[in-house]
Every structure is written in C-alpha cells, then in structure tokens.
Design a protein around this nucleic acid. Structure first.
Lengths: 190, 190
DNA sequence: CCTATTTTGTTTGGAGCCAAACGATATATC
DNA sequence: GATATATCGTTTGGCTCCAAACAAAATAGG
C-alpha cells in the first residue's frame, strides 16, 4: 500500500452533496473502477482482435466457453458465459448461421439443446485466442503477474458475495413487499 | 499474497486446447474476473435499489455525474459516464421526459448542450445515493477497505493503459491496413 | 471574406441484454 | 395414469450500446 488514501476530488464533492452523511468511499471506488475497466477492456478488444474476425464480445465469450468445456448444454453455456438464456438463444443463432457452432439434441431429455463447435469454429478459436490473450496482456501491462492474481482474487470475492448472498439481500431490502415490476419485458396474455 | 498460484482447472483446459502454446494466465484471470464482477454488481444494483426508483444503471450513472459535477456539457457527461455521445442522447431524452434533468443552451457556442438536474432530480439523488452506496458496501463486504483501494488502483492502471496507449496499439496491430468495417451501424447515403 | 477542417450533438442500424411469459417435456405424488 | 410441479430453451418488449454518417456551428489559414 503506497498511500493514495486521501479523499479524491470526486469524493469531496460527494460529501458536499450529501451534507455530512457518511459514505463508504473505498467501496464506492472499487465499484466505479470495476465498470470503467470492464468497459475499457471490452472496447479495446472489440475494436482490435474481435473486429478483424467479425465477432462481438459476447459471441467470442460463448465460443470460448464451448471451446474450453466441449459440447455442452445451453443452460451451462449461458451460466458460464455470464449471460441469460434468452440472450444465448439470439447469440447462438448468429453463431450457427455463421457456421461456427452446431446444435444437437440430447438423447435422454428432449428439452435440452447441446452446443458444440464446428471444425470451422475450432480453427477460428485456435487462431484467434492467442491474439486475444496478447491483448489481455497489453491491457494489464502496468500490473505485475502477482498484482493480476491478487486483483483477480479480490474480484472473485465480490462475485461470490453477490452469488451467495445477493438474492437473500434483495429480499431483505424489500422487507416482504413484492418487487417493483420491470419497465421492459413480456406482459401476461390476459 | 497467500499462494493460489496453482494453475486452475480452466487454465489447464486452455493449455490443452492450445497444444503447448504459451498463454499469459494471470492477465487472462484479471480480465475474466473484471467482467464477471461488473456484471454481478450491476445486476444486483439494478434489481434492488434502482428497480425501486425505476432507473437503469446507465440512467443512474448519468444522473450521478450531473449531480456531482453540476450542470455540464453533454460531451463531458458522456465522457465521465463512460458512454458514447450517441447513447447519451437517448438516455438524456428519457431522463428529461421523466423530469429529472433539463437541457439548456450554451450562451457562447450554439453547438453545445448543457445538462443539469431539476429539483426533482436532485431530491431523487439525495434520497437514492445513500442506498446505492450501501449496496456497494454490501458487494464489497468480503474486502477490507485497504483491499478495496488497492483493487481500485489496479483497475485504474488498466483504464489508463488503454486510454493512453490503446489507440496507438490498435493502429500498430493493423500495420497500415484500414480497420474492418463494423457489422452494425449507419451506412453512407450513396 | 472564403474555403477547409474540426468539433458538437443527433440519427441510424444492427446487435446485446434481461426478466417474465410461454410451450414442451420431464419428474413427483397420489 | 392422472395431475401438479419443475425445468428447459424460446419469444417478447423495452431498453442499452456503439460507431459511423450526418447537419450545424465554430475555427483556421489563406
């Protein structure tokens, strides 16, 4: 820890706006920077490696999951890729149309859909992944490998916290009331 | 650093797929976890605090920026909020229609648009921000304040690296060729 | 002046994204 | 076996998001 503990410009302004109500500025700082970093990294990759091979970020992530884990059930791919199953339906449709993945039925359970790479998809990943990883290294250039690992670990703890206690927390916040309806989304037929 | 240096399951699988080509797994780990964490945090906040007041993540961020920095020019708001100016046009339209912000013209330069909070917007932020910050604290519960700061600092270095060297790097990668066209987006008239 | 060039915010087109509703299938309980 | 309940992937509706094209306005260089 090399200092940098002082309240930043932004935090002073926030304090001013709130008129003395205490805020947790360290936690505010991580959350804000997680999103800045995510956007910056994603944009860099979309505009370099992925643009060249005409893949979106999400498309790449889905391919990657299937590549690494082999032919898998839809729900697992969505879970691992961090997108909803509804989103996966659209993304996988695109990838199928481009000949990168193929759908097949599950023998025992006819509700399930299996997604696997085609040989074209496999070739693509073998070619693109090293370039992708080189850009990951580029964006993390100012961090030592050790710092990468400690940072990754800290982020993983945030993910776990939300995964393990998020729902419970949201229910607690509502205090028995039912959640506000979402602005967008499908409506009941009746 | 408490160890955890061993190659994880996923990384072993990646190595297998690549047949021995070296990859930078520490950097891969940060990048992957940045995105997991960003998605988890965003979803938690959208489904708790923001849902109740009918704000999207981006809508909240835009309001926040204007709240903290005061009435500002559009381009600055977009920059600070981390969204494109095109996106801001849509988001600010929504916020204006809900009476939370107001647009005004710049006296000296007629190209500019100023965005400022209405009193309704200001009230909302004073009420919502403490709750928002409480959830930031919740998601970061497994990190000490010091860990929050070091993590935030590491992420900031990633953002700076991309901001300061990203474009140059992308040009270098192209090696003189012009960038591939984007799949979506407006087409020339002719 | 007058013609580039630059800089603003807006429009546009295609894709992503989620939650809830939904239909089809599978499982549990009687 | 019927009937309820759970789970799968898909559809739907509304919003986010970006980059490039664009029009309007400002600035630069003669």
């Amino acid at each position: 820890m090399t200092g940098q503990r002082s309240i930043t410009e932004t935090e002073k302004l926030v304090q001013g706006r709130l008129g003395g109500i205490a805020i947790r500025h360290e936690q505010m700082a991580v959350v804000a920077n997680i999103h800045r970093a995510a956007a910056a990294v994603r944009q860099h990759l979309e505009n370099s490696v992925l643009r060249d091979v005409d893949l979106t970020w999400t498309g790449f992530v889905v391919l990657w999951v299937i590549w690494i884990w082999g032919e898998s059930e839809s729900r697992q791919v969505a879970e691992e890729a961090g997108i909803s199953k509804g989103t996966l339906t659209g993304v996988s449709r695109t990838l199928v149309s481009r000949g990168l993945i193929a759908r097949s039925e599950h023998a025992g359970d006819r509700r399930l859909v299996l997604l696997g790479l085609t040989s074209r998809g496999e070739e693509l990943m073998r070619r693109v992944f090293p370039d992708f990883n080189a850009e990951e290294a580029f964006v993390a250039e100012r961090l030592t490998p050790e710092e990468c690992l400690t940072t990754a670990d800290a982020l993983r703890r945030i993910v776990r916290q939300v995964e393990e206690h998020g729902e419970e927390r949201r229910l607690h916040l509502l205090g028995g009331a039912r959640p506000a309806p979402r602005r967008s989304g499908r409506r009941p037929k009746a």
